[in-house]
Simulated scan of single mutants.
Amino acid sequence: MSQAMPRLAPLEPPYAPEIQAQFDRIMRGAPPLLLFRVMAGHARAWEKFRGGSLLDRGPLSLREREIVIDRTCAKNACEYEWGVHVAAFAEAADLTTEQVRATVRDKADAACWSPAEQALIAAVDALHERATLGDAEFKSLSAHYNEAQILEIIMLCGFYRTVSYLANTMALPLETSAARFPK
């Protein structure tokens, strides 16, 4: 996926004032991501995409949220979104280099994770592989997370699977500032 241009044309600056305002809110002064520029070129898709965002102060910690997002994107072979999130949030989420690597390369029970994080990653893996949690997986997840957190985990997995579909299918070239999958 090292194409120079995505399959769908992104918006080019200058952006309409309402789109610029949305980009400013999302990106906090940084240039808009290519994914956002492509989506914003399609009003209905952009509205729905922004409406599904889960990057607010929800019931999960930043660290938990980013583990779910990174693992989901890795499972979906979406280096674009994984790399954006690792570059933007891994440090703030206190993810070590080993843990970042583990989101792509290791099993859920890797020693670098706490028991709660292992349950979290196992849930992401199960949702990716089977679109459901078995009784044992749900029990393990419930031992560490409450109902609101479990719903958030499921929603994050679904939303970032959709983001992965979008980024992968549009063949988005990797952002220059984004991280790359470990070898």
Rank of each mutant, 00 (worst) to 15 (best):
R65P: 08
V38S: 03
P59S: 14
M1L: 15
P14T: 09
D24H: 08
A74D: 13
E47Y: 06
R44V: 15
M5R: 15
S61V: 08
H42N: 10
G58A: 12
M1C: 14
A40Y: 00
F49P: 00
S2A: 14
S61I: 08
A9F: 07
L33F: 08
M27C: 12
E64C: 09
P6M: 04
E47P: 04
L54F: 02
F36R: 04
G51M: 01
D56F: 13
P10T: 01
Y15V: 03
M39F: 06
A43Y: 02
P32E: 00
I26A: 04
M5K: 15
T72A: 09
L55R: 08
D24P: 02
I19E: 06
R28N: 05
I26Y: 00
G58L: 10
E18Y: 10
E64P: 06
P6G: 03
R65F: 06
P31D: 12
I19A: 08
M5W: 14
C73E: 07
M39W: 03
D70S: 15
P32F: 01
M39D: 02
M1N: 12
F23P: 01
E47Q: 12
P59Y: 09
Q22D: 10
E18C: 08
S61P: 09
A45D: 10
I69V: 15
P32T: 00
E64L: 08
L11N: 04
S61F: 09
S53C: 10
R50E: 11
F49G: 05
A74S: 15
A43L: 00
A21Q: 06
R25N: 11
P17E: 03
L60I: 07
F23S: 01
T72P: 05
G58V: 11
A43P: 00
V68E: 04
L62S: 05
P32A: 01
F23D: 01
I19K: 06
F23C: 02
R57V: 12
P31G: 10
D24G: 07
A40I: 01
G41C: 03
R37E: 03
P10G: 05
E12C: 07
F36P: 00
H42A: 13
R25T: 10
M27A: 12
L34A: 05
D70V: 11
S2M: 13
R71D: 05
A30C: 09
V68N: 06
R71A: 07
L60Y: 02
M27S: 09
E66C: 08
I26S: 03
Q20Y: 00
F49M: 11
G51I: 03
K48I: 12
S53R: 14
P31K: 07
R63M: 06
R57H: 13
L60V: 04
L35I: 11
L55P: 01
A43V: 04
I19G: 07
H42L: 13
D56E: 13
M1H: 13
G29N: 05
R50F: 02
A45G: 07
M5Y: 15
S2R: 14
A9P: 03
P31F: 08
R28S: 04
L55E: 12
G52N: 08
T72N: 02
L60Q: 07
A74W: 11
F36D: 07
S53D: 11
F49Y: 15
E12S: 12
E18I: 06
F49R: 05
P31V: 10
P14Q: 10
P59V: 11
R25K: 15
L11W: 02
I26H: 03
M39Y: 03
